[in-house]
Design a binder for these strands. Structure first.
Lengths: 181, 181
DNA sequence: AAGCACTGTGCAACTAGTTGCATAAAGCGT
DNA sequence: ACGCTTTATGCAACTAGTTGCACAGTGCTT
């Protein structure tokens, strides 16, 4: 149950319409909590019904008309409650690892290219994060909110670094016994 | 659609009943693809209907009676196909990161303990993986299947190492500006 | 003013995963 | 023979996320 909270966070950062939120979920918040526009519209409706957010009065209510939302006190309180609540990390679920395990019983044909392809994707993502860090977090920005956001970005960077290293090593090590199965 | 493939892999490693699979999903394969017994039974039924697996003939078909399954050629072929198929890594979805981001707008009360708690959990998991590595992968084991499985375990170890380091650093850095928000 | 592309909102149906509970047989103590 | 615990299988209902598509207004182009 995190999507509503992701939306509340995004709306507190800046009141937005559904489409604007969708675009912001394609970067920034979406880097660690992705969502499609359908999920977002559905959730906006639910949050409005529950009194957590409301449409800014200026906007008309018809289709095809932009509708901006802002967070109400009840929504902010719920977000604060959820943020401080203990939640266990959810267990890892990764198909690439699962496929390597499967390759151990049905043969490793084709896995090598897949590892290389993933390495490339993770390198790109890493470069993107590092670019954002350079742009958004110069050393002089040091308010608490900046620190929190920076630490989150740091997680993204370190995670992609982990993947690139692990993939590099895996490719090397499995390459030594090439077309085996 | 990975659960059926996880089950096929587990069954190829060793024919098992639903409950045995459930136990094995609590460790080993479950470390990177978890599943509850209900998911497993449902999927076993589906795979049997589709002709990917079959119940070993010796077992009766009634409730409360153990029913062991083995993989049929069609199942093995499907697993091999799926293993070699290109699949993009799925985007990260992590509530702790989301909550840190939320803390930047609603205040960081309570987050510090949560970070410490997670650090502890990740340290335990890391220790568990390292124990398995010591036990199951002595240097002389070097067949291809062992290498593949070892590389997968290595991913678990490196991933937990990343989390412990990142959490340690985050706690330090946010601690400097303690009860802020 | 007819056609078209773009912006924006939204429903419906589907797939995957979770939670809670029901049922059946076997083993064991009394 | 009775109830209790353990092993084992399974259904039903729910929650979350995905996919495909429909519909409405705006503004540009010819």
């Amino acid at each position: 149950m995190s999507l509503p909270h992701a939306i509340l966070t995004a709306l507190l950062e800046k009141p937005s319409s559904g489409l604007e939120l969708t675009r912001r979920f394609d970067k920034s918040i979406g880097y660690f909590w992705s969502a499609t526009h359908q999920q977002i519209y559905r959730e906006l409706g639910r949050l409005e019904r529950e009194g957590a957010i409301r449409a800014l009065p200026s906007q008309g209510a018809t289709r095809g008309q932009k509708k901006e939302y802002e967070v109400l006190p009840a929504g902010r309180a719920e977000l604060a409650r959820w943020t401080a609540e203990p939640q266990d990390p959810k267990p890892l679920r990764d198909t690439l690892l699962l496929r390597l395990r499967a390759a151990a019983v049905v043969g490793a044909e084709g896995i090598q290219e897949e590892l290389r392809r993933h390495l490339d994707l993770h390198r790109r993502q890493l470069a993107e994060y590092e670019e954002i860090e350079r742009r958004d977090f110069p050393p002089e920005k040091d308010a608490v909110e900046d620190r929190l956001r920076h630490v989150v970005l740091r997680a993204g960077i370190d995670l992609e670094t982990f993947w690139t290293r692990w993939l590099t090593r895996a490719i090397e090590e499995l390459g030594e016994t090439a077309g085996a199965g």
